[in-house]
Design a protein around this nucleic acid. Structure first.
Lengths: 212, 212
DNA sequence: CGCCAGTATGAACGCTCGTTCACTCAGACG
DNA sequence: CGTCTGAGTGAACGAGCGTTCATACTGGCG
C-alpha cells in the first residue's frame, strides 16, 4: 500500500538512533516505548527490529557511540595540551564542556540511562566512565606533585578525588542549564569552565589567565 | 490466612515510602513496578492503594518530602551564617553537601525522577528547584557586589550563573561518588566542599581558612 | 458484645509492553 | 526475466503493567 522505500542506505538505522536519542532524553529509556520510537521514524514497531536486535541494543549503540566520541575528544585534547598540568586541566575542562554543550541529548542519556544496560555491557560502560574520572584525577595529582596545584592545603584527606569530581560534575552537567539563546556563547562557557577548573585545583591563576 | 496486622499506626505507609526510595533509586521510577514495591514491603499490590492513591502519588510524596527537608536545611543554615557572603556560601555548600551524603536515595530520586510527575506537580517541583539555584546565585551576586568574591575578573558574561551551577552540581552529586567506608568522613567532605565553593567564587581564602 | 473502620487479600480488569511472524514489494543481479 | 535480498507492513503473541474490587479479618469503641 504505502511506499516501502524511504532511503537507500543505512539511513534508516541512523534515523532510529536519532529518535532514540530524543525520546530517551525526554522520557528516559524505560519511559519510552518501541511504538513511540517507531512513530518518531514513521515506521511500524516491527521494522525497528530490522535494524536493531532489541530496544536494549539501541540503547547500547547510543551510549557506546557517545563514549567513543568523548574518549576521542579527551585524548586529542590531552595530546595537544603540552606537559603543564594547568594547561592540561584547563584544556580538558574547556573541551569537555564544549562537547557536552554540543551533545546534550547524547550525554544526558549516557549519564542517566546506562544503568538499564544488561550486566556485561553496563560494566563495560562503567569501566569507561571510571577511566574518564581517572584521567582528571591523574592530571590533578600530577599538578599537585609538581607544585602547580594546591589541594593539600585544603586540609582534607585525598582532596584530589573531591576536586576532580567537582570539575567533572561542573562539566558534565553544563547542558542542564546552558541556554544556547542566552548571553554567553558555548565557546565562552567552555573557556569559563576551564578557568573555574583551575580555581578548584588551586593553581594556574599566577600567569595572567585573568583578563580575556 | 496470613496475619493481617503488621503495624498499628501509619507505619506501613512509611515502609512503602522507604521501599519506593530504594527501588526508584536503583531502577528508576518507570523501571519499578507496583508488584516489586509490594514485595519489598511484604504486601500484595492492592494493599499499596490503601496508603497511596497511585504510583505517581508515592513518587510525589517522596520528591516533595525531600524538597521540604532541603529547604529547611538551607534556610536554617542561612539564618545561622551571619551576613558575610563568604561565610554564607561556605556554610551553605557544607550543609547541603552533608544533606546529600545523608540522603543519597532521596536526593537521587528527586533529581532524576521528578520529570515523571504529572504536569502541575512537576511544575511545582521545578519552581522549588529554581529557588534553590537562585539562593546560591544570590549569595554569589551579593558577594560579588561587595567585593568578597571575584567572578567578573574571569572575563565572562554572567559568570555568576556558571559558578553557582558549578557549586550546586558539586554538592548535589556528591553521593554519586562519596564512599562512607572511604578515608574521608562525611563531615570532612562537607567542609572540603565549603572551601571548594569559596575557591570557585574566588574569595574567602584571604582570612586563613587554609589549614584545619 | 456487636459493630465499624482500617487494612489486608487475591483474583481479576483492560491495556500496553517488547517482540515475533507471515507476508509483500521494490530494486539489484546473473 | 526469474530470483534473491533487504526493508517494510500489520496482526498477533504472551507477559506484565497499574489499578480495582469483592471479600475477610481484627482491634478498639459504644
Amino acid at each position: 500500500m504505502a511506499v516501502n522505500v524511504r532511503s537507500p542506505g543505512p539511513e534508516t538505522r541512523e534515523r532510529i538512533h536519532d529518535a532514540g536519542l530524543t525520546l530517551f532524553n525526554e522520557r528516559g529509556y524505560t519511559g519510552t516505548t518501541v511504538r513511540e520510537l517507531a512513530d518518531a521514524c514513521d515506521l511500524t514497531p516491527g521494522a525497528i527490529y530490522n535494524h536493531y536486535a532489541s530496544k536494549e541494543a539501541l540503547l547500547f549503540a547510543i551510549v557506546d557511540r557517545v563514549h567513543d566520541e568523548a574518549d576521542a575528544v579527551l585524548s586529542e585534547t590531552l595530546r595537544g595540551a603540552g606537559s603543564d598540568p594547568a594547561a592540561q586541566l584547563e584544556a580538558l575542562a574547556a573541551a569537555f564542556t564544549a562537547f557536552h554543550i554540543a551533545r546534550p541529548r547524547e550525554t544526558r542519556v549516557a549519564n542517566r540511562d546506562y544503568i538499564y544496560l544488561p550486566g556485561g555491557e553496563r560494566e563495560s560502560v562503567v569501566r569507561r566512565r571510571r577511566r574518564v574520572r581517572a584521567l582528571f584525577a591523574d592530571v590533578l595529582r600530577d599538578g599537585e606533585r609538581r607544585g602547580t596545584f594546591s589541594l593539600r592545603e585544603l586540609g582534607s584527606e585525598d582532596a584530589v578525588q573531591a576536586a576532580s569530581m567537582a570539575i567533572l560534575n561542573m562539566v558534565v552537567l553544563v547542558a542542564e542549564w546552558f541556554d544556547p539563546a542566552g548571553p554567553r556563547s558555548a565557546g565562552d562557557t567552555a573557556a569559563l569552565h576551564g578557568r573555574l577548573a583551575l580555581r578548584i585545583a588551586g593553581g594556574g591563576d599566577r600567569a595572567g589567565t585573568a583578563a580575556v
